[in-house]
Computed example of a mutant assay.
Amino acid sequence: MEARHSGRGYRPPAAAPGAIVRWPDTFGTRFTLFVDTEEEFDWGAAFSRDAGGTSHMSAMPDAHARFAAHGVPLTWLIDYPIATCPRAVEILRGLIGDGRSAIGTQLHPWVNPPFDEDLSAANSFAANLPGPLEAQKLATLTQAIAVAFGVRPPIYRAGRYGIGPNSFATLARLGYRADTSMRSGYDYSRDGGPDFSAIPNHAFRTGPAETIVELPLTTVFTGTLRRGGAMLHRRLGSVPRGRGAAARLGLLSRVALTPEDMPLDEALEAVRIAVGEGVRLLNFSFHSPSIQPGHTPYVRDAADLAAFWRWWDAVFALLGRLGVAPASLAEILDAACGAGPTSATAAGAGGL
């Protein structure tokens, strides 16, 4: 699958019909949960190489236990400050001992060596870096994770969803089997990032010889005008307060499957729509610092944290009623790759 653009302004096209993953009937309809496992930083400040706090990782065992009580495995997408923090590694090694949770990769270029680029908003999208530098950063991070956990990570997410046309060749060279950097229905081009307006919620094959499975983050448009989708949402963005008015009137809302800034009632409706429209794998996510109040704008205090957990309890209850079961990373890779061009075994994917 070829991109229309390269570098900044990357806009991957919709997947060709033959590239869409055909899930086995035995897979059913499933959901997965990826955690952007990263350092603590001020979301309103400029990018800094000095932001590297990982104190919130002490809250991960309790959080993991709450998800495990629902039978939900987690895939921890870890970046360089986490991968090189002995305490964080120790905690995560214990959590993936459940046999179903897994470790993947997330690249935050501003805190990931080598540091050969200027700090800027544009360069926070890894794909905007010169190709060799992006590749060096990703290789450095992959090796750090392999050393910390004893096995190479099989799945990648670009921080800030900053995937690009050069990224997939690097991922293939480093042995990655899947990517989850594309956020269906979102456009980051105004900030110098990619535009995923054409990306569906369905998993598809991409990269060199279609050897990488793309697992887009699920985004659902709700409301009476939801068929307008990303195009209508973009147009409303050019109207002062247009998106907010459309949402309040029940005309159009863009709902990502995350408790971070997504109201519960809208998320429940989005789940119903996604399942009703035949999305076979629903992709949920959140940022690890949200587990502890004060690190992200989504969980500022104890009340926000309580709401965070209520969100998950209600979503898991609905998924159970709809017959949508959780899937581990190993199960996803086995189902997606077993009969396709990426038919290598999933050894290590579930035991990371």
Rank of each mutant, 00 (worst) to 15 (best):
H5E: 13
H5K: 11
G7V: 07
R11P: 00
A14P: 01
G18M: 09
W23M: 13
T26H: 08
T26F: 02
T26Y: 02
T32W: 02
D42A: 15
W43Q: 12
G44V: 12
F47M: 09
R49V: 11
G53P: 03
A63K: 06
Y80S: 12
P81N: 11
A83Y: 02
C85F: 07
R87C: 12
V89W: 05
I91P: 01
L92F: 06
G94K: 11
G94W: 07
G97I: 09
G97K: 11
D98M: 08
S101W: 04
A102Q: 03
W110P: 00
N112Q: 07
F115R: 08
S120Y: 06
A121S: 06
A122M: 07
S124D: 06
N128D: 14
T142G: 00
F149A: 02
Y156C: 05
R160M: 05
N166F: 12
S167R: 07
S167L: 09
A172L: 09
A178F: 00
S181V: 05
S184G: 08
R205G: 00
I212E: 00
E214D: 05
F221T: 04
T222Q: 04
G223F: 07
R235N: 11
L236I: 10
G250Q: 13
L252H: 01
A256Q: 13
E260I: 12
D261M: 08
M262Q: 15
A267P: 01
E269N: 13
I273R: 15
N283T: 12
P289S: 13
S290F: 04
Q292N: 11
G294W: 04
R300T: 15
A302E: 14
D304G: 01
A307R: 15
W309Q: 12
W311K: 12
R321S: 11
A325R: 09
A327N: 13
A327R: 08
A330W: 01
I332S: 00
A335N: 04
G338S: 15
A339G: 05
A347G: 02
G351K: 10
L352I: 13
